[in-house]
Design a protein around this nucleic acid. Sequence first.
DNA 1: CGCCGCTTTGAAGGCCTTCAATTGATGTGG
DNA 2: CCACATCAATTGAAGGCCTTCAAAGCGGCG
Lengths: 262, 262
Amino acid sequence: MKTLGSDTVINLKQLKIACKDCRLSEICLPKDLEQAEMKKLDNIVGRGHPLSRDEVLYHQGDKLHSLFAIHSGSLRSFTVTQDGTEQTLGFYLPGELVGLDGLESTSHSCTTVALETTSVCELPFHRLQSLCTDLPGLQSQMMRLLGKELSSDHDVLLLLGTRTVEERLATFLLSLSKRFSERGFSATEFNLSMSRHDISNFLGVAVETISRQFSNFDKEEILQVKHRNVKILNMEKLQQIVTPCQKSDHKRDNDIDLAAVH
Amino acid sequence: MKTLGSDTVINLKQLKIACKDCRLSEICLPKDLEQAEMKKLDNIVGRGHPLSRDEVLYHQGDKLHSLFAIHSGSLRSFTVTQDGTEQTLGFYLPGELVGLDGLESTSHSCTTVALETTSVCELPFHRLQSLCTDLPGLQSQMMRLLGKELSSDHDVLLLLGTRTVEERLATFLLSLSKRFSERGFSATEFNLSMSRHDISNFLGVAVETISRQFSNFDKEEILQVKHRNVKILNMEKLQQIVTPCQKSDHKRDNDIDLAAVH
DNA sequence: CGCCGCTTTGAAGGCCTTCAATTGATGTGG
DNA sequence: CCACATCAATTGAAGGCCTTCAAAGCGGCG
């Protein structure tokens, strides 16, 4: 293992891992790209020093220079309004792409900070866009990831619009569990990199309410919570909370569709 | 004016308006495209018969065939969960693009219905994607619209996460007002194409609560509400509700950023 | 005209928030 | 190494905003 020294920057540059050697390539941007294509993508990827906890990747209002794929660690995105209210928009894990906000106005509409020591792969936006023109597969993949971001936001809208605290927290934990397991980590035990404040802000409730709900889950032996360490003891029950009562006799409202346009 | 007859389909096809002749081209997908590019886009655009009220454009779960640009009328998108809960995700006006959900899994994650008689321009997805490879300007524009959709979702997240009913409804009405005026309609008087139920569901509150808030605004002489007709009497006050108290002394929390990666 | 669905209004109750205080974790300096 | 300061998290109690239940208006449409 190299020790940190005056030539740290050079060392880190040498440490850059090619997409083809990265174990995240199956869930990250280069997914389904051919070797030659992946190499082209690799050529535009930059890597700086890792972000430390609370360090800002980009600020709300910053010009959009690059998108970022997370290599390790985790990030939190949030907006701050004129009156100082903060809303957490999402948490990001390795293999996920951040910076997609800001595609509209070419400047970022939210701030993204590291929740822990985090290293990211930088994708200069204009070069990425050119590359998308060359590689239709990459373009599809970009679209796919944008669609994923939209779906994820829709899920949160549903959560904030119609769910109780119990359901919100359960959904949140199951989402983390799933994403951890997709990345080869345990689905039942993990450490939260975000604070209670972050979680409560994301889920649109007060910190105290989240704390109480953690305690409830603990009492009911659904979870075993020790600060930021979470063990899921009863996965089934957690899933039941998220899907309360599957009305099988449910009928779609606007089921008319007699003649669609296509 | 032509009358509807047995050759309706042909007539409607003849009625198709080229992008260059459409007054929405400045806010719609072809924005900033050159004449020749616009023509290429035009070639893939299809137009069926107009949707009538409550008619479904596409269903949750449907394969993604096309994106749709609204020519006239308005649409509502919503998801239905297993237990039958419905969450409205957004309302769409002329010049806006729908169907972007479903870019991830290639099948739609929500249902979109017409709120009134609505005509849409159909953009076959695969042809659109190929065209994006040919026309970098169109690709940028697609990205821009996707980014806009993301920003819009983030705004709603903020609304649902931290705002009172008063603020939610005010924000909603101001958003409509702005969009109507961008389309050449009055910013202060308009007819809502969506029901109170739709609005309340979108804003994550009970129908009764929305109804009460409309009444409050009416009493306070901020609005004049008659069923679905809304007149904004006091635009300033409405904006004050949305931006309660601009703390000018507000300081950013995580303002560290000593050394960004780029 | 009369029915039906949407909207409005009223009243009671509940879930979550806010305020307040305690406990626990973390980190620093003596 | 421990005391102390600081911040995060937990727990309790009171209050408020919104929901739910209920019923009456009001419009649209056959």
